[in-house]
Design a binder for these strands. Structure first.
Length: 971
RNA sequence: AGGACUAUAGCUCAGUUGGUUAGAGCGCUACCUUGACAUGGUAGAGGUCGGCAGUUCGAAUCUGCCUAGUCCUACCA
């Protein structure tokens, strides 16, 4: 083996082997266990969040696979309608071509081309992360099968009365020319103005204080062209006499009523609100209550129309209202028009004042432009009926969120859920299965033929709806559409409901909630009981940069997980972060920041270290600040494992690589190493040392801890338990304790065999525990180690996960080792504080202690001598005078390092004083507790007893050290 | 405006149903190239657990208030 761990030397080939051998596919044996990958955007690339997500899922899948479950982890991507179309349009735009130049069909060909070209990025990344997904079942939301499922779901929902079409206000993106759902709108705090306009009263009416106008305020002056009313609060005394009167809308000369509505906040501004039902969601509701017309003044680019489009609240055309608009603004962009209209008000003396105003501006999460509420025909999913069972499924525990707190977030959203606008004015996506006849009647069906037959349309001309469905509509079907629905496939029967969904909290509404609704609606058991999509939703935090900022392309702080695996130079990283930017003006800032954060670029850490880091950061928090230092630590951990394995192999193989006797040959003499190693044929007895029994016992406890932590989705605790066991117990102590045995020329064959067997078996088991966290290094080492441990198998992937055995827990061995460690640490401490070279063997005396302690010393001298580098040890007789010595206490035992020639008087006094201070602090604390009658009376007996024991021990230790102190001080 | 979450060592984070001398990694200090490993070893230093009250014999842990930060939902024209 190489002297240091070289991740890139082992990773790729193992993944290829695993994949080629088909280890990732379900075995067909055992209880099914299924995870569906949250589909990333097919044209994107994985970021740290995906890396994190994959580490968790693969950990769960590999663990369950090793536990014998029939595991399916299914990969795939979604088609990301808006994002993908934007990318392709941008590419075409660079060549001066628009999608309209190409036409729908040719444009879609281009998109498919791009998908084919870029789709490999993500699958390549998933492979490099070591994810054991079943590639044979990879799915894509635009696949034929999934498209079939989408169509089927749409038609059925329509038949069930849960999909409808209507003219409503939607969030319109004037750049992308499509409706988007309210979830895709980001409300950002921005600075703006509040313009106060005078609206003259009609018919000579006046306000209570004699004015001939009222004042309304607006943040969007251009919408005044579509005003249909002015509203005041019904109980507002100032305007009582005006309710039912009219104002004459400036610029337009439209006569609009003054209505009373308690939506109005009397305290805000003048208490008068202009009502524009076609351009504001609240005004739309007011308009509904007062029968106001919807006066649309914007076109699809959010430029001003030459003539308004007027509708009644039910969406039918309104012919009563005069649609005339002032010609001056026709065709002007909304912000241009805004300026012009404000200027005109000012010219007319109707601009009362302009205030600065902080407001929330709705922006499209993709385009970044200001979203306009706009009146269009759209398709909606009626959500109320679907939400109800979805709420129940979580309430009654059929679906559990981990951590539980996210259930509140889910409930809050679900209980106030709005109908879901699912149509998008795009070309890339699932086309809506609806057809229109010449009269504009709409028919929904699986295809045109079905529609004609079902509605007896003969050969009347029909045309299909031009729109496509929201990508999240197809994602909502993900758990079952990917298993073959609407066909009742074997896979669907076996793996649905799936077991766990692993995701970030940011898409609970977008995806998780909608999946729950759709799945409960469509998937039923044989007895008609709705199926949940998954039993657990494990919600993890969002990976942030070291400053705690969210990683985003525009901030230029994104990291590609592969760059942490393989490493990247500073120049390449800068290049990567500043390429293809939407806002190139930020490049300089990003470059500077990148150079500051990664002055040396990023080193190569390997997949295993990255994955272990992700797992160790997976606690219950919401934010995960990614810490490079931590990853470096876990890379070192891999190196530690690597070198531990080297040590084990060195001691369990001969120089030619043939195995030594590690007890792997069982009870017969087959495979005897009599030829190579002088083993007596047939001899199989094994003697386990104290250290052997101890490490075996600790292994059981580790197995318990990991098991428990994984059951609770505490990947951080699981990885920590593993880390501690391997580094702090196996490497720091056990390997050191094995040396005195292996290097003892007097050691019996049974002793050697026992220690070798323990060395390999414990490490082999530890590798299996670690495998779900660090698949590559564990496989690499396991291949060499398994035969020595007497294990058969082609891969560690399919080996059983170790299970704790209660009978192997050895409390006595643990106590003995604790004592031994106490002695060793005590001596080392004296060495350290007294500046005695670790290379110098010293003599140590023992005194007091329990009879058991003396026996411990007797039995384990070899360990002590080696680990503390002692020349000699000796237990003083009761009546024997102790020489002047530095003292350490281990329980009852006093460990003495004679001072003669070695120890400086003042240094030892200082050291003792430090110990005494510590003890007296502790004594004071405990005395305080025990001196409190309330404590003694009310606290449980066991607690009081524990405190008493603690006090006694501390006092005794204190006395002994004090005596020692006095003795030395008297010199 | 409503709600949620977070606050523990210089940094990144653990701390299980209230009873510990409050832990880990990184960083820091001193010493050590001893035959697995300097991507290492040994020994250390470092915290009045954001603040204030309360419940309790006992609070990092439970309750309330305050402060700071993050986020979500809704929204004032």
């Amino acid at each position: 083996m190489e002297k240091t761990y070289q991740p890139h030397a082992i990773e790729r080939s193992w993944y290829e082997t695993w994949e080629k051998k088909g280890y990732f596919a379900p075995t067909g044996q055992g209880d099914p266990y299924c995870i569906m990958i949250p589909p990333p955007n097919v044209t994107g690339s994985l970021h740290m969040g995906h890396g994190f997500n994959n580490a968790i899922m693969d950990c769960l899948i590999r663990y369950q696979r090793m536990k014998g479950r029939n595991t399916l982890w299914q990969p795939g991507c979604d088609h990301a309608g808006i994002a993908t179309q934007m990318v392709v349009e941008r590419q075409l735009g660079a060549q001066g071509v628009s999608r309209h130049d190409l036409g729908r069909e040719k444009f879609l060909d281009k998109v498919w081309e791009w998908k084919e070209a870029s789709g490999g990025t993500i699958t390549g990344q998933i492979r490099r992360l070591g994810s054991s997904v079943d590639w044979s079942r990879e799915r894509f939301t635009m696949d034929e099968g999934l498209s079939e499922a989408v169509k089927e779901a749409f038609v059925r929902l329509h038949e069930d009365g849960l999909i409808y079409r209507g003219k409503r206000l939607v969030n319109w993106d004037p750049k992308l020319h499509t409706a988007i759902s309210d979830l895709e709108v980001e409300n950002l705090d921005e600075k703006g103005n509040l313009w106060h306009f005078r609206y003259p009263l009609a018919d000579g009416a006046t306000t209570a204080d004699g004015k001939d106008h009222i004042v309304v305020a607006t943040t969007r002056p251009e919408t005044m062209l579509g005003d249909a009313a002015v509203a005041v609060h019904p109980e507002d005394e100032r305007y009582q006499n005006l309710i039912g009167q009219f104002v004459l809308l400036p610029l337009v000369n439209r006569r609009i009523p003054i209505v009373a509505d308690d939506y109005v906040d009397r305290e805000f501004g003048t208490g008068c609100v202009k009502i524009t039902p076609a351009h504001d969601f609240n005004d739309y509701e007011v308009g509904k209550r007062h029968g106001l017309p919807l006066i649309n003044v914007l076109d699809r680019d959010a430029a001003i129309l030459a003539s308004a489009q007027v509708f009644n609240i039910d969406g039918t055309p309104n012919h009563e209202q005069d649609p005339t608009l002032p010609g001056a603004y026709a065709g002007q962009d909304r912000f241009e028009a805004r300026k012009a209209i404000v200027a005109e008000f000012e010219r007319l003396g109707l601009l009362e004042k302009v205030d600065d105003h902080a407001l929330k501006v709705p922006r499209g999460d993709r385009s970044g432009v200001v979203i306009e509420p706009w009146l269009t025909d759209q398709w909606y999913v009626s959500t109320k009926a679907l939400a109800e069972p979805a709420i129940k499924a979580v309430e009654n525990g059929e679906i559990q969120f981990v951590p539980k707190q996210y259930e509140n977030m889910y409930f809050a959203w679900m209980r106030d859920i709005q109908d879901w606008c699912i149509s998008r004015q795009l070309w890339w996506g699932h086309r809506i299965p609806a057809w229109y006849d010449a009269q504009g009647n709409v028919y929904v069906g699986r295809d045109e033929a079905e529609v004609r037959a079902k509605y007896s349309l003969g050969d009347a001309p029909l045309h299909q709806d031009e729109d496509v469905l929201d990508t999240w509509f197809s994602s909502a079907l993900w758990t079952f559409s990917t298993l073959g629905w609407p066909q009742n496939t074997d896979a669907l029967k076996a793996f649905h409901s799936t077991d766990v969904l692993v995701t970030g909290f940011d898409i609970i509404f977008f995806w998780v909630a909608r999946m729950i609704m759709m799945t409960l609606h469509f998937m039923k058991d044989e007895d008609g009981k709705p199926q949940v999509p998954f039993k657990y939703v494990y919600v993890h935090g969002l990976v942030r940069d070291s400053q705690g900022h969210k990683m985003s392309k525009s901030k230029g702080n994104v990291l590609d997980p592969l760059d942490l695996i393989d490493g990247i130079t500073l120049e390449d990283l800068v290049q990567k972060r500043t390429a293809n930017m939407m806002q190139p003006q930020l490049a300089a800032k990003i470059e500077k920041q990148t150079r500051k954060e990664f002055p040396e670029g990023i080193a190569s850490y390997g997949t295993d270290a990255l994955r272990f880091t992700f797992c160790s950061l997976a606690s219950t928090g919401r934010d995960i600040k990614f810490d490079m230092g931590r990853m470096e630590g876990y890379r070192n951990f891999c190196n530690k494992i690597w070198n531990a394995a080297r040590y084990v192999l060195m001691n369990t193989e001969h120089e030619d690589g043939s195995p030594r006797d590690c007890g792997q040959f069982g009870g017969d003499a087959q495979g005897s190493e009599s030829v190579a190693g002088g083993r007596t044929p047939g001899a199989t007895e094994v003697t386990l040392s104290l250290a052997d029994r101890w490490i075996i016992s600790r292994l059981q406890r580790t197995e318990e801890q990991v098991e428990k932590a994984l059951a609770e989705f505490r990947f951080d605790l699981a990885s920590q338990a593993l880390f501690e066991f391997i580094w702090n117990e196996y490497c720091d102590w056990y390997l050191e304790l094995s040396k005195p045995v292996l290097w003892d020329e007097q050691a019996s064959e049974a002793q050697l065999r026992g220690t070798r067997r323990t060395l390999v078996r414990v490490l082999e088991a530890a590798l299996r525990i670690a495998h779900p966290f660090m698949p590559y290094i564990t496989e690499e080492i396991w291949q060499r180690l398994a035969p020595l441990a007497g294990r058969q198998g082609e891969t560690i992937m399919l080996q059983p996960f170790p299970e704790a055995k209660a009978e192997k827990i050895d409390a006595a061995a643990e106590a003995d080792i604790e004592w031994l460690k106490g002695v060793i640490v005590g001596v080392r401490n004296i060495r350290g504080e007294m500046a005695i070279s670790p290379a110098k063997p010293i003599d140590v005396l023992f005194r007091k202690g329990t009879p058991g302690d003396a026996e411990r010393l007797q039995n384990n001298q070899q360990f002590l001598k080696k680990l503390a580098n002692l020349a000699s040890v000796r237990w003083l007789a009761d009546d024997e005078e102790a020489p002047l010595a530095a003292t350490a206490l281990v329980g009852e035992t006093e460990v003495l390092v004679p001072m003669a020639g070695l120890i400086d008087k003042d240094a030892e006094l200082a050291r003792l004083q430090k110990e005494l201070d510590k003890l007296s602090k502790s004594i004071k604390q405990v005395e305080g507790k025990l001196g409190n009658a309330n404590f003694v009376d009310k606290a449980p007996e066991a607690v009081v007893a524990k405190e008493r024991a603690k006090l006694e021990e501390a006092r005794s230790a204190c006395e002994r050290l004090q005596a020692q102190y006095d003795k030395i001080a008297a010199l």
